[in-house]
Nucleic acid binder design. Structure first.
Length: 417
RNA sequence: GGAGGAGUGCCCGAGUGGCUAAAGGGGACGGGCUGUAAACCCGUUGGCUAUGCCUACGUUGGUUCGAAUCCAACCUCCUCCA
């Protein structure tokens, strides 16, 4: 049933990565002809990438595995401008220090998915600040500004959204699409890069680059986007568990990462296995067909595989074991996220709301009180109903810790020091 | 530059002098049902050293016993005119 000649496109197609492509046939031919160099840009707006980026990273992994060359473009320069795509209002500008710090945080995850080096299909990482910050304004306007019309720029979804919401869009942000187009042109010149990939929200930005390369370089380059990921019930992915699902372990514990995959909706199991693991398709088909409770086994495998890719087999196994103990045996397992509290303070006693807030299970003391009233708060698996309840060293269990729980799934251990 | 309209909590949106920490919806969180799922039902949804205090309806001032609500200036957006 192979639809394409190239291994890369077939893999993407079979596993559900493809949303749109500028010219599927020509891209397929190019992939057969030799090594294709392809880039994906990553913004440096946060100190870690999150789960929404994972599909892009996986795509680059497939690219490399099928014999092509990935470029990881760090948006050190473009982040100074700020991508208005999908932003309903301007974001505060980040300082150069913040951007650099974010970049350092983001960088680390790629080594787990791609092989970097000097070889022909080894991945390379570049920072667009290297060329964007060198641009001269007047020169840039004359060389590139002439290839863009305001008429067309105004038709872009990112611009229209802002205008329709009656939110300001600054000229700086308006220029973002030119920067990204220029990146493509630049990477074409530098690395012979002829494919840009990204999320479907990047389609507009990508075709701008494709157009620019056609005009400036008279070269056909390609754009390929992934579908916007949502769960079967229409939620944006990773919305549960309070906050973004970060990839860096210091932003989100391995346990929580594992948990988030374990809680996948039934209808999404197959889709996620295809996108986020390397499991063979026939194996996935078998797992996907499981019914009812049995599907939970497939979810565990999904969580194991995905966590192994990002954090390694050992960390994934620990997370799985922690979850097993916490859920199947109701124990205060060691691998749960842990906070430290001064033993002296614990001796005196800490009001429960304060401790839950310190553990980041609740966002304020008031929030904690409301949760206690709502019956969602447990200490060592016992529901507490008194909001004035003091947590003291008497609550320490035989392992010398106290287990705080909010709801059924979120647990934090308190350890005296 | 001129005329008119608008800016409300995480988001959308009602409110046009005290009854307003601000209707309603969405989202989020918790409870119930379950399979650590979805759907559904119920509750909660500004902060605090808490029978009270503080912060909040674009920003800054003002009127008033009292302002999201009235006035002034400013900022931003929309529509029409130039």
């Amino acid at each position: 049933m192979a639809q394409y000649r190239s291994e890369f496109l077939n893999t993407l197609e079979e596993r559900g990565f493809i949303h749109q492509c500028t010219d599927m046939e020509a891209l397929d031919a190019a992939l057969m002809k030799g090594i294709v160099t392809a880039y994906i840009g990553y913004d440096c707006t946060a100190p870690s990438l999150h789960i929404g980026h994972l599909i892009q990273i996986m795509m680059q992994r497939h690219l490399q595995k099928s014999g092509h060359k990935p470029i990881v473009l760090m948006g050190g320069g473009t982040t100074k401008v700020g991508d208005p795509t999908d932003k309903d209002k301007s974001r505060p500008l980040l300082s150069n220090e913040q951007i650099n710090a974010n970049m350092d945080g983001i960088r680390t995850v790629f080594a787990r998915f791609l092989t970097f080096g000097e070889g022909p299909t080894d991945a390379v990482m570049v920072n667009n600040d290297d060329w964007l910050s060198e641009l001269g304004y007047l020169e840039f306007l004359r060389d590139y500004g002439t290839h863009f019309t305001i008429n067309r720029m105004l038709t872009f979804e990112s611009v229209k959204l802002r205008l329709s919401r009656e939110e300001p869009m600054t000229f700086l942000e308006f220029n973002y699409m030119l920067m990204q187009a220029y990146d493509y042109h630049n990477l074409l010149g530098r690395f012979g890069c002829t494919l840009q990939m990204g999320g479907s929200d990047q389609w507009g930005n990508i075709i701008n680059g494709v157009e620019l390369c056609r005009r400036k370089d008279e070269t056909q380059v390609f754009g390929l986007t992934t579908p916007l990921l949502s769960t079967a019930s229409g939620q944006k992915m990773g919305k549960s568990m309070g906050g973004a699902i970060w990839l860096n372990a210091d932003m989100l514990s391995v346990y929580d990462y594992w948990q988030m995959w374990r809680n996948t909706e039934d209808a999404d199991v197959g889709k996620f296995l295809k996108l986020f693991t390397n499991m063979p398709l026939d194996e996935i088909a078998r797992l996907e067909a499981l019914q009812g409770q049995e599907l939970n086994e497939a979810k565990k495998l999904l969580a194991n595989e995905v966590t192994t890719l990002l954090h390694g087999a050992e960390a994934a196994a620990t997370a799985a074991e922690t979850a097993r103990q916490a859920f199947e045996q109701g124990m205060a397992a060691e691998g749960l996220p842990t906070i430290e509290v001064s033993a002296a303070k614990l001796e005196v006693g800490i009001p429960a709301p304060e401790l839950f807030t310190a553990a980041e299970l609740t966002k304020s003391n008031g929030d904690a009180r409301r949760q206690i009233k709502g019956g969602g708060v447990r200490v060592n698996d016992k529901v507490i109903s008194d909001e004035k309840r003091q947590i003291t060293s008497k609550d320490l269990d035989e392992d010398g810790v106290i287990k705080l729980s909010l709801g059924k799934k979120r647990h934090v251990l308190v350890k005296p020091v």
